[in-house]
Amino acid sequence: MNFMIVRRAAVYLSLSIATFISIFPFYWMVVGATNESRDIVTGKSTIGTNLVANFQNLLAQVDLAQVFWNSAVVAIAATVLTLAVSSLAGYGFEIFRSRVRERIFQILLLLLSIPFAALMVPLFVMISRAHLSNTFTAVILPTVASIFIIFYFRQATKAFPGELRDAARVDGLKEWQIFLYVYLPSMRSTYAAATIIVFMTSWNNYLWPLIVLQTEDKKTITLVISSLTSAYTPDFGVILLSTVLATLPTLIIFFVLQRQFVQGMLGSVK
């Protein structure tokens, strides 16, 4: 009995520590956004009164609407295109039998192990030669065929009943119609989970946009936050406020799609 109580206490304690480690940075970010830079440096961790001033300072330094627009265009376009291309590929890999299918898929999985640092120089050369540097297309294009998302959709497609496809064929649907009218709506939760993953990855992408976007009018939110931190005397209140604002869209998407996200990660067909 005592052992059970001790074990339960240990579990709750470790969960509490993990929760604290997860939540404290977020709490500190929100609190910091309401404080002056010098209060943050001294470690003040309660809500302050400098939120409006921080906001005014941020607006004075950054064209916030433009920056958010840029990030939104990149993230939304990348999400839509990645889901369209990678879900089609994942579906195709699972549904259509072929002798070389597994070999090609193994090669794709192998490519996952190549770090982006090794790819960015040749990618930049390709983008430059295609005269696409400093465009949103340059940011979006390399992310569209995501091996991870193809893999994710292939795994999820295993739960898609083959008899549904057969029923659709008997009902007179062509392959593309089966994908569009039967598979896609049946796999809503899978798409929801993939939307969150791809949107967050794209919204938070820093290194690749830093390489291909040069002018101020094209910069995304991650690049702007980075430039705020590199000032001679960084204003931590402004930096943390911009970080809070940058976090909001991903938070909203996560909360809107939360239920489907959990179902999608569990691989259910609804």
């Binding site: 008899e163 057969d166 029923a167 049946s186």
Partner: peptide, 14 residues
Amino acid sequence: GIAMVFQTYALYPH
């Protein structure tokens, strides 16, 4: 000119 009824019903879930 056929119609088929499947073992798992194969109804469109959505």
